[in-house]
Amino acid sequence: NKASVVANQLIPINTALTLIMMKAEVVTPMGIPAEEIPKLVGMQVNRAVPLGTTLMPDMVKNYE
């Protein structure tokens, strides 16, 4: 099973992601793959992301 990106803390709306906000975890359903973490740094979330939430592509602005 591949790990996904999971919020390590509450991430407020429009916050630019940093490494300490994210962790890799095997979850179902899968979200953004953990190997994308370096690419996510500096990208903004378009909603508040609660602690423990799996990051999905539609939660990150301009994620492709």
Rank of each mutant, 00 (worst) to 15 (best):
E35V: 06
N46K: 12
D58C: 15
I32T: 02
A7H: 01
N62V: 04
L19P: 11
L10W: 11
P57G: 14
M21K: 03
I20Y: 08
M59H: 09
N8I: 10
L19D: 13
S4M: 02
K61Y: 09
N8P: 03
E35C: 14
I20K: 07
L51S: 07
L40S: 01
Q44L: 12
P38Q: 06
G31D: 00
P12D: 09
A48I: 07
N46T: 07
L17G: 00
G31C: 07
L17T: 01
L19Q: 14
D58N: 10
V45Q: 01
V41F: 09
T28K: 02
V26Y: 05
K61F: 08
G52S: 04
N8D: 11
L40C: 05
V41E: 07
K39M: 04
I11M: 04
G31L: 01
K39G: 06
I32N: 01
N14I: 05
N1R: 02
P38V: 03
V6G: 02
G42W: 06
P50F: 12
E25F: 05
K23T: 12
M22Y: 01
P57A: 10
T15Q: 05
V45H: 00
V6C: 09
G52Y: 05
G42K: 07
N14T: 06
A48N: 08
I13V: 09
M43L: 10
V60P: 01
A7F: 01
L17F: 03
E25C: 11
E36M: 05
K2N: 15
T54A: 08
K39W: 04
P38C: 13
L10P: 15
I20H: 12
K39A: 05
A16Q: 08
V49M: 05
S4Y: 07
G52V: 01
A3D: 15
T53V: 15
I32S: 01
A34M: 06
S4E: 00
M59T: 12
N8W: 08
V5L: 03
G42V: 01
G31Y: 02
L51C: 13
T15W: 08
V5E: 00
T28R: 02
A34G: 15
A7E: 01
V26R: 02
L19W: 05
L10V: 14
A24V: 09
N62I: 03
L40F: 02
M22W: 01
S4H: 02
D58V: 07
Y63I: 03
P50N: 12
N62Y: 09
E35A: 03
E36Q: 11
A3K: 04
V27T: 07
A48K: 13
M56S: 08
D58Q: 08
T18A: 11
A7V: 08
A48E: 05
N46Y: 05
L55H: 00
M21P: 01
L19M: 07
G31N: 01
M56F: 09
L10D: 11
M59N: 11
P33E: 13
E35Q: 03
K2W: 15
V27H: 03
E64W: 02
A16Y: 07
V49Q: 02
N46I: 09
V5D: 00
L17N: 00
M21V: 06
L51P: 10
P50Q: 14
T15I: 06
V49R: 06
A24H: 13
V41M: 08
V45A: 06
I37Y: 02
E64Q: 15
I11W: 01
P29N: 14
V5Y: 01
V60A: 02
N1K: 06
E64R: 10
T28A: 14
N46Q: 13
K23R: 14
T54E: 02
V6E: 02
M43W: 10
V26E: 15
R47C: 10
M56K: 09
N14A: 11
P57I: 14
V49S: 02
Q44T: 13
E36L: 07
M21I: 08
T15V: 12
P29F: 03
A16P: 10
K39I: 07
S4R: 02
V41L: 06
L40M: 06
V49W: 02
A34T: 06
L19I: 10
R47K: 12
I20A: 03
I11A: 01
V5K: 00
R47G: 06
V26T: 02
A48Y: 06
M56T: 12
A16V: 09
Q44R: 06
K23E: 05
V5N: 01
L55V: 07
G52I: 01
G31R: 02
I13W: 05
L55F: 14
V6N: 04
M43N: 12
I37H: 03
I32Y: 03
P50V: 05
V41D: 10
D58T: 09
Q44V: 14
P29C: 14
M30L: 11
K39E: 03
V6W: 03
V60Y: 02
Y63L: 04
P29H: 14
V60G: 01
M43V: 13
P57L: 04
N62R: 09
E25P: 02
L40T: 02
T54V: 08
T54K: 03
N1D: 15
Q44S: 09
T28F: 08
M56Q: 07
N46G: 12
M56V: 07
T53A: 11
R47L: 09
I37K: 05
T53S: 14
L17H: 00
L55E: 00
M30P: 11
V45D: 01
K61S: 13
L10F: 10
A3Q: 04
E64T: 12
T53D: 09
P50A: 08
L10N: 04
K61V: 09
V6S: 05
S4W: 02
P12E: 15
V27N: 10
G42P: 01
D58E: 07
V49G: 01
I32Q: 01
E36I: 08
I13C: 14
E64A: 13
K23D: 11
M30G: 05
Q9P: 00
P38T: 12
V27S: 10
E64P: 14
G42L: 06
M59K: 02
M30N: 13
S4L: 01
P29G: 13
L19C: 15
P29T: 14
P29A: 08
V26G: 03
K39C: 15
D58W: 03
V60F: 02
K39F: 07
P12C: 15
I11K: 00
I37L: 06
M21C: 05
V26N: 04
A24N: 08
L17M: 11
K23W: 08
V41I: 12
A7N: 02
L19H: 10
G52Q: 14
N62W: 03
A3I: 04
P12Y: 11
K23C: 14
N62K: 12
M59Y: 10
T53M: 14
G52P: 01
I32P: 01
Q9D: 06
P50L: 11
Y63T: 04
Q44W: 05
Q44E: 08
R47D: 13
A3S: 14
E25D: 13
V5C: 07
M22R: 00
